[in-house]
């Protein structure tokens, strides 16, 4: 990487094409909750708690952790919490693993587990139990909710949230690890379930779950690293599967996996940085999947988190396992 990062050589010295529009992105994220008259707002209600986690994380990585009022965020998070310890996407939505993980991640980022206890006695334990109950005792994997749909995303989410709360002992880690092993494919990568096509997003969930479990030794690291680096296309962007188009969100799924395997240098960071920056909306803020497309908060956080992994100057360090500020995970995990 030839990007400058020393003191006094920050973003202002950057050529226009290498500029990250921090203030615009902050304003974009702040504006998301003021757009309630738009159709899009209620059509994405099922993603509200995820969206809050994405926006909040992006703001923290941009160095503006206070841009959303802490109290308001917490009030909303608690309004999604069910008595059984699961979180729904929004008030009145059923509890589901994916929102429960976002809920825990937000509480961890805001250092708010004490407030959780004030609000719900034994809250942390209840959330942990909700997650633990979703583990399939036979296969070791996790369901997303009472429907029973299973996916390596849910397994990763479970280990992510439980580890942040110090409650990994509630589940059978060895069984979970065996399940991940069964999702490994002939090309060295991983899919959503045994036999399902390799996909960068699923690689992230499997590698991150194995990292949390302390079992990266089970990964064929050379082969997976090669498969991951093959995701980079000539325009610098990364794709999710062979022979598919590039998309900014894979900057996160692919790069974080490579970072966990210590192979981030196998791809061209400078070209990727340029590609991510081209996906910005320089006027209204936010990042899109690829240059010229409509921005959204999902691509915004994963683009910014990708830039953080690429050591873009001025950004807060991200933890590749959790997609949260490294300082936060250090505080929660004590390492």
């Amino acid at each position: 990487m030839s990007l400058v990062s020393g003191p006094g050589r920050g973003m202002t010295a950057m050529p226009a094409e290498m500029q990250l529009y921090v203030d615009r992105h902050v304003r974009y994220i702040q504006s998301l909750d003021t757009r309630k008259d738009e159709l899009e707002y209620w059509l994405t209600e099922h993603l509200r708690l995820n969206g809050l986690y994405w926006g909040l994380t992006a703001l923290h990585l941009l160095g503006h952790p206070d841009a959303l009022a802490r109290e308001g965020v917490l009030a909303f998070v608690f309004s999604c919490l069910h008595e059984d310890g699961g979180f729904g996407a929004a008030p009145g939505h059923d509890a589901h693993m994916l929102y429960t993980v976002s809920g825990v991640q937000i509480l961890a980022t805001l250092d708010a587990f004490d407030e959780l206890e004030e609000r719900m006695k034994g809250g942390r334990q209840k959330i942990g139990q909700y997650i633990a109950n979703l583990q399939d005792p036979d296969t070791g994997t996790f369901a997303g909710d009472e429907w029973g749909e299973q996916d390596t995303r849910f397994l990763y989410g479970a280990l992510n949230a439980l580890s942040l709360m110090g409650l990994l002992h509630l589940v059978d880690i060895e069984k979970a690890v065996q399940h991940i092993q069964s999702c490994a494919n002939f090309d060295g990568a991983y899919g959503t379930s045994p036999g399902a096509e390799s996909h960068s997003g699923q690689v992230f969930t499997c590698v991150a779950a194995l990292t949390i479990a302390g079992r990266l030794d089970l990964v064929n690291q050379e082969k997976l690293g090669a498969w991951l680096s093959e995701r980079q296309l000539k325009n610098g962007g990364l794709n999710g599967r062979p022979e598919k188009k590039e998309d900014v969100c894979y900057s996160w799924w692919v790069m974080s996996s490579m970072a966990m395997l210590n192979k981030l240098h196998w791809i061209d960071g400078e070209k990727l940085t340029k590609f991510i920056l081209q996906c910005q909306d320089p006027e209204l803020g936010g990042l899109a999947d690829r240059p010229g497309d409509m921005v959204d908060v999902f691509h915004t956080v994963f683009g910014i988190a990708g830039l953080s992994l690429l050591k873009y100057p001025g950004l807060v360090e991200v933890d590749p396992v959790y997609c949260m500020p490294r300082a936060v995970t250090r505080r929660c995990l004590g390492k």
Binding site: D33, T34, K36, D37, Y41, W42, E45, R48, L52, L68, E71, G72, V73, A75, F76, F78, S79, C80, A90, P91
Partner: peptide, 10 residues
């Protein structure tokens, strides 16, 4: 849950 703007859904 609350009347905070973050929570009100239109």
């Amino acid at each position: 849950g609350t009347l905070h703007p973050l929570a009100a859904i239109a």
